[in-house]
Nucleic acid binder design. Sequence first.
DNA 1: TTGTATGCGTTATCAG
DNA 2: CTGATAACGCATACAA
Lengths: 359, 359
Amino acid sequence: MSLGPDPVKSRRRATIADVARAAGVSPSTASVVFSGKAPVAEATRERVLAVAADLGYTGPDPRAASLRRGRSGIVAVALEEHLRTAFLDPVKTAMMDGLTDGLAELGAGVLLLRDDPGAGPDAPTLATAPIDAAVLIGCSPRMRETLEAVRARGLPIVVIEGDAGDDVPRIELDNREAAAQIARHLLALGHRRAAMVTLPFDSGRERGDATSERIAAITTPVTRERLEGVREVYPDARVVSAGASMIDEGLIAGRLLFADPEDRPTAVMAQSDLIAAGVIRAAEEAGLQVPQDVSVAGFDGIAVDGLGEHVLTTAVQPAAEKGRAAGAAIARMLAGEQAASIRFTCTFREGTTTGPAPS
Amino acid sequence: MSLGPDPVKSRRRATIADVARAAGVSPSTASVVFSGKAPVAEATRERVLAVAADLGYTGPDPRAASLRRGRSGIVAVALEEHLRTAFLDPVKTAMMDGLTDGLAELGAGVLLLRDDPGAGPDAPTLATAPIDAAVLIGCSPRMRETLEAVRARGLPIVVIEGDAGDDVPRIELDNREAAAQIARHLLALGHRRAAMVTLPFDSGRERGDATSERIAAITTPVTRERLEGVREVYPDARVVSAGASMIDEGLIAGRLLFADPEDRPTAVMAQSDLIAAGVIRAAEEAGLQVPQDVSVAGFDGIAVDGLGEHVLTTAVQPAAEKGRAAGAAIARMLAGEQAASIRFTCTFREGTTTGPAPS
DNA sequence: TTGTATGCGTTATCAG
DNA sequence: CTGATAACGCATACAA
C-alpha cells in the first residue's frame, strides 16, 4: 500500500505543496515542519513527515530555497593554481582546513574554484556560480578582473595573502617583520655571509640567482615582503629564487649556493620550510654539517616530512587561524557589518638548524 | 541621462526584467542575450548590453537560473576525513585534480563536503546542498546513510575506492592483482622472508603487528585487497599496519620490522609509496642497505619528496585518471545514461629499491 | 498554531 | 529573430 511512489501522476517529483495537500495542511505549515523555523503541533508534524515519506519527498529543493532566501549557503574559494599545486603546499592545506571549519560554523560550504577561464565553456566562475561570498587565495592581476564581477554582484569578498584593492578586507601575515626577526637571529649568531632562497617571484617560476631587475619586478607580495625583511638586516645577501615551495626546489637552490667552496654562505634563510628542508639536504650532500658549517632557517612552522632529527629554526605562522579568520570575516560581512583586514603575527621558533657562525 | 542607476525605485537590484523593459525588449530576448542560447540581432544585443551596464545589471542571478533550469552546476565531493588529512595524501590530491578537471569540462564546480554532521547546525550536507550529483571518496558505513538521502533525491552518484552498493558505479583499482604482481617480483628475486606494511585497517588507525583477528576485521577495502594480493604469493608474510599513509608511519613500522637482527625480513612490501619511503629510512637507520640487505616496494607510483636517489619499485596507479573518469561518469549519468563501474589497472614499475635476496 | 497570498529572478516553449 | 506566457519550488509577512 505504500509502494507506488506517486499517488496521482507519477511523472513529477513530489513538492512540498503535494505533501501539504496530502497531509491536509497548508504549504506554509509543511515548510515550517522542515525548516523548524516556527513551532508546530507535534501531531501535525508527524502527519506531515509520514506523508512526506510516503510520497518520497526528501525535503525542500535547495535550489528553490536558495532563490527564495537569497542565500545559497555556498562560499567560493578561488585558487590561482592547479589544485595539485595548491595542496602540495602544507601551509595552504592547513589554511583551507581552517577555512572550511570557519565556513562550516557559519553554515556554508566551500566551492572550489580555479581562476582559469580555459577550463570549460560553461564551467562555473566567480561570476556565474551561485555563491554568497568569495575568498581569494592570493590575487593575481587576472584574478582582479574576475573580482570586479563579484563586487558588482555585491557579494562579500576576503583575500588571503594578496592585494585586491583597499576596500577588500585582507587576511595577512607580518611577513616582513618575521623575516627580519630570523635575519636578526642569524646576525646575532655572528653570521656575515648570508643568503636567502625565496619563493617564486611571479607566476613564471623562474629559478636561480636574482638580478636586481628581477627583484624589482617581483609581483608576489609574500615573496617581496619576506625578502624585504631579510634585507633590512642583510642588505647585500645573495638572493636565489626557487621555482616553488618544495623540497626539491630547495635542493636545487641549495646546490647552487653551495657549489663554490670558496664562496659559500654560512647562513641560509629559506622563505618556506619545504625549501629549507631541501637546502639542508643540499648542504649535507655537499658535506656540510647543519648547523656547524651552515645555518639554515625556514618559514611557516609546518611539520616537514623528511627532516630527520632536525628541528627547523623558523617563523611559525598561524595557517589554520588565517583560514578561520577569513571565514569569520565572511560571516560578519554576510551579516551586513564591515570587516576589517586582519594581520596575523608569526612566532619565532629557534630550532636545531641554526647556530653560531663558523670561525 | 545615463547616470541614475535606477529608473524607478533605487532599493532593489536590477533584474533582467528591468533591463528588458528599459531596453524595450521582452524578458525572453534579454535572457537570450545573456545566455546566447538563440540568435539575437546585433543591434538588439548591443542595446540590451548597454542598458544592462547602465543599470548595473551583472548577469542572471545564478540562484534563479538554477531553479529554472533544474541544475546548479555544482557537484559535491564528499570526503571521509578532515581536509588536512585528505590532502596529505598525494594520491588523493592527484585524484581530486583529475576530478576537478573532469567536472570542469562538464561545466560543473566542486563543492567540498566533509561527511561530518557535527560541523554546524545548518552546515550544508549531501542532503541539503544545491548539487546536481555527488562523488564519494571512500565510503564509510556512516557515509552510506547519508548516501541514501542523495539517492532518494534521484541524484547521480559515483564512488571512488569504496563500496556503496551494487547499483552505485565505482571507480576502482586492481589492487589485489597489482599487489600480487609486486609480491611475485620479489619471489622471483629469491626472497623468502617477506613482510608487509599496510594502510590503516579501519578508521581506528591502530598501529603495529596484526593478529589474524584484526586482519579478519579489516574494513577498508583497499587495505584488504592489497593485503590479499600479497598473501596469494606470501601467505605467511608478517603484517604490520601503519596508522596512516605517511613517511613517518612507515618509519615507525620499519623500526618494528628491523628491530630484531635475528628475525628480519629481506623484502618489505608497503601499501603506499609514502610508507615505503619511511621503511627505507628505517632500514638505513638500522644500518641496512637498500636493496642489498633489504628490498622495499611501495604502491601508488607518486613522486615522493624525500627518497633521495632511490627509485621506488612500485605499482603505478592512474590517480588523476580515476578522478577524471569519475567526472566522465557523472556527466553520463547527468545525461540520463547508465554509467558502469570502471576498474583501472596499475602498471608495475621496477625501481632501484628491490634486488636479489641476500645469500 | 495554522492558513493565504505573493513574489524570488529566470528561462523553456511556442507562436508570431 | 522576437515576444507572451507559464512554470520552477519554496518561504515569509500577515491575517486568522
